Simulated assay, not measured.
Amino acid sequence: MKKLLGLLFLMLLLAACGNNTPEESSTDHSETENKEAAASENENEEVETEVEADEEAAASLSSLASCEGILFEVGKTIEGKQLAACMADAMIAAGTGSHKAISSTGTTMVDFQWNPDFSMHVKSQDMSVIVDGDTGWMNMPDVGWVEETDEPRTGEQVIASNVIKLTRVLGHPLIIAENFAQAPTWHVVEQASVPDADAFVDTAWHLVPEEPINLLGTTLTDVQLWVTNNYLGAYYIATATIGEVSETTSNTFTQWGGPVHIPSPE
Rank of each mutant, 00 (worst) to 15 (best):
K2Y: 06
L7D: 11
L8G: 08
F9Q: 14
C17V: 08
E31I: 00
E33N: 03
E33R: 07
E43P: 00
E48H: 08
E48W: 06
V51G: 12
E56Q: 15
S60L: 03
L61V: 05
L61C: 05
L61F: 08
S62W: 01
S62L: 05
S62T: 02
S63R: 12
A65L: 14
C67P: 06
E68C: 02
F72I: 05
K76A: 14
E79L: 12
G80D: 06
G80Y: 08
Q82Y: 00
C86H: 09
A90S: 15
A93Y: 04
T96Q: 14
G97I: 01
G97W: 05
K100V: 13
K100H: 15
A101R: 13
A101S: 15
A101W: 06
I102G: 10
I102F: 14
S104Y: 05
G106I: 07
T107F: 11
T108D: 09
T108R: 10
D111C: 03
M120V: 09
V122P: 02
V129N: 11
D134G: 12
D134H: 11
M138R: 01
D150Y: 01
E156L: 07
E156K: 02
A160C: 00
A160L: 01
V163G: 02
T167G: 09
V169P: 00
G171Q: 00
I175R: 13
I176N: 14
A177L: 11
A177T: 08
P184V: 08
H187F: 14
V188T: 06
S193F: 05
A197M: 12
T203M: 15
W205S: 07
H206K: 04
L215K: 13
L216R: 06
V223R: 07
L225E: 06
W226Q: 02
Y231F: 15
Y236T: 01
Y236M: 10
Y236Q: 08
T239A: 10
A240V: 00
T241P: 01
T241W: 05
I242A: 11
I242H: 10
G243A: 06
S246L: 13
T248W: 06
T252W: 09
F253H: 15
P259T: 11
V260I: 10
H261V: 13
P265W: 00
